[in-house]
Design a protein around this nucleic acid. Sequence first.
RNA 1: GGCGCUAUGGUGUAAUUGGUUAACACGCCGCCCUCUCAAGGCGGAGAGUUCGGGUUCGAUCCCCGAUAGCGCUACCA
Length: 511
Amino acid sequence: MIAAGAFRIRTVMGTIRVRFAPSPTGLLHVGNARTALYNWLFARHHGGKFILRIEDTDVDRSEVRHEAQLMEDLRWMGMDWDEGPGVFGPHAPYRQSERLGIYREHTDRLLTEGKAYRCFCTTEELEGERAQAMAEHRPQVYSGRCRALGAEESARRAAAGEAFAVRLKIPDHPLRFHDLVRGDVEFPQETVSDPILVRSSGMPVYNYVVTVDDALMEITHVIRGDDHISNTPKQVAIYEAFGWNVPEFAHLSTILGSDRERLSKRHGATSIASFREMGILPEALVNYLALLGWGAEGGTREIFPLEELVDAFKLERVTASPAVFDFEKLNWMNRHYLRECDADRLAELAWPYFVQAGWLPEQDAAAADVRAWFERLLAIFVPSVDLLDQVPGKARFVFDFDPLRARDEEENAALLASENAQKVLAAFAAKVRAHAEPVDAAQFKAWMNEVKAETGVKGKELFHPVRIALTGSHSGPEFDKLVPLFEEGSALALPKHVLSVRERVEKFLAE
RNA sequence: GGCGCUAUGGUGUAAUUGGUUAACACGCCGCCCUCUCAAGGCGGAGAGUUCGGGUUCGAUCCCCGAUAGCGCUACCA
């Protein structure tokens, strides 16, 4: 292989046109999303066109809802397309199921030109050939028996109603193509079989339609998963048969799980929808995915907002080796963007999780003061989470204060058992009860100093009992943030009343 | 079995394309901050570049071979 850096992108020949061609058979997977992203980045970087084409020739497994979800996921990540379903384009339609007539015409052309032929072989015969080849340690290729059939005989048998598939005649020379990430790839011609173009059922096969579409849609660069490398020589032969220009290819490596197996649901969340649901920010996912298989020149920068990705992205710098998906690093990336996210958007995004917990009203039904209060709550809890869906867990005690459970917890019980803890609690409670107004952070701080002076207890022994009495836990955010949150929250009309400092103390002491 | 692709710390990527103490990030460990847990800041350990040959004054980088992982090998996509 030649170093990939030696290649130049051929921009001079005209506008770059790339496509993302998913099958709407399920949720969009990170691997495919990354393929889409690299296509999109490449197109945007060069001012080219990004085309979305739906590969729905597998009628049984394709569903419209998946197609809709797919498009939503792409948009969520920030990608748009210049041509595709629902968008006007010069090469419509963009769903393969609507292009069947086009494929048929092309097959007829190949047949009449003698580039393809009818194959009447049965499945059993083919299986026999395969077994034989395997036993003889030979490549498993079709013998080409029907290739020798005369035109009249072929036509006669077809007319007589005999079932046939259409096969392409593989040319008599090695098939090679240029890959922007791997260099030149060549397949000896004796290892590539005459591929079936059209099944005996009349349905064209994937490798065929994909090629016809790419050519007709004037795709200049085919960027896709490396599981297609072995298919490429067949596709190259199809281009040749039609006399079409062969595009450039870029085969992206596989995304692996931590066990170096292909990433799948078995490894955890893999669909874009599930990442969104758990509270991954789109910019974090996109940035992470961009780095998984690509590195900027120099390689020391990690944080790339989408616009800067467009600028920095070079297809020649895409890595050829498979990459392990690292959830930890994605989390780190998400923390980074969470920190940068402004309060308003954060509230917008985190809100549904709190509605689901039964703690907040629907967002559009919420008063402005509730909104403002919630934004402050988020400012306290978001910095300590990886994902947005973890925030309710962190903030649970704000809405759902359970003294009994807190007392039962082993470490808490030990902390509470000491004489000092009891003294502290008694002194603290006395101050709270003697004070009718809402408490502010300064007041609270003063109390703690007084309690310290009165009891002679300080440090952890001083704070832990109070913390348990107020939050149910011996650890958590700083009091000067929590106290105002409790006090102001208690004044709000919420589905679940937020207890004030005083209410917390009373409830804790009562149980 | 055949063909193809790949190979730098645990993970993702760098390395002026033959000359570096092999860099950065995640993770890990430690310290600081602090009532506490996180977060954050600072620092540290961790690879001599899969292995074996070669070319060269000198190889992560070039050549050959091996090994391993993965993919394709369908009238799946």
